[in-house]
């Protein structure tokens, strides 16, 4: 028993010794990288109805995210040096409904249910491509769900929610995902 106690004490001291040595910043996971690249794919294959953007056609395309800072960082990296038909791509972290309404693409993490309902409610009537990372996104009226299957990223698109948003997504892209239909919130 005494030996056990001694060993444990040594171990705790060791932990205390290592802990400060280890670095700090955390690197975004591959999930974020793949999600960002998929979002870029969606932006490439999506069309927003004319007049939908609050500003002129040369304005940037705003891809916003809430509740997942690591995704915003990955998006920024993915968008670096890229533009689509002359429009700049901008990644932005959003917190409020007012900010969300200025986005073309809105990713909301389902970790915060209240925020999910609020942000998605705010963009329900305007053409914003809404994306979530759990099935809760559909319940809240969202359009695209990203999910993992067998370690690979998959997406599902709610066709009725997509139609309501007036954003159009190329059938070529839709074929690669799963399709969900059904009643809308």
């Amino acid at each position: 028993m005494l030996r056990t106690v001694v060993a444990l004490t040594l171990v705790l001291l060791l932990v205390a010794w290592i802990a400060p040595v280890v670095g700090s910043a955390y690197v975004s996971g591959p999930e974020d990288e793949v999600m960002s690249a998929l979002i870029l794919g969606f932006v490439r294959y999506a069309e927003w109805p004319p007049g939908a953007s609050p500003t002129d056609p040369s304005a940037s395309i705003a891809v916003c995210a809430n509740g997942r800072p690591s995704l915003v960082r990955a998006l920024t990296r993915t968008f670096a040096g890229k533009s689509i038909s002359g429009r700049q791509l901008v990644a932005r972290e959003v917190k409020t409904a007012a900010e969300a309404a200025l986005c073309q693409v809105l990713f909301v993490s389902s970790d915060n249910q209240r925020q999910l309902t609020e942000l998605l409610g705010a963009v329900q009537q305007i053409p914003v491509l809404t994306i979530g990372d759990s099935e809760a996104i559909f319940a809240a009226g969202g359009i695209v769900q990203f999910f993992e299957e067998d370690g690979k990223m998959r997406f599902a698109v709610h066709l009725d929610a997509l139609a309501r948003s007036r954003v159009s997504v190329s059938a070529r892209l839709l074929r690669l995902g799963q399709v969900v239909k059904g009643k809308l919130r």
Binding site: G29, P30, E31, E33, V34, S36, A37, L38, L40, G41, Y45, R77, T78, K82, E148, G151, K152, M153, R154, L173, L176
Partner: peptide, 16 residues
Amino acid sequence: VADMSVEELLDVQVTS
């Protein structure tokens, strides 16, 4: 990853 097609992306192992 950023330059991959959507098909390729769906084939990438994502979990760490």
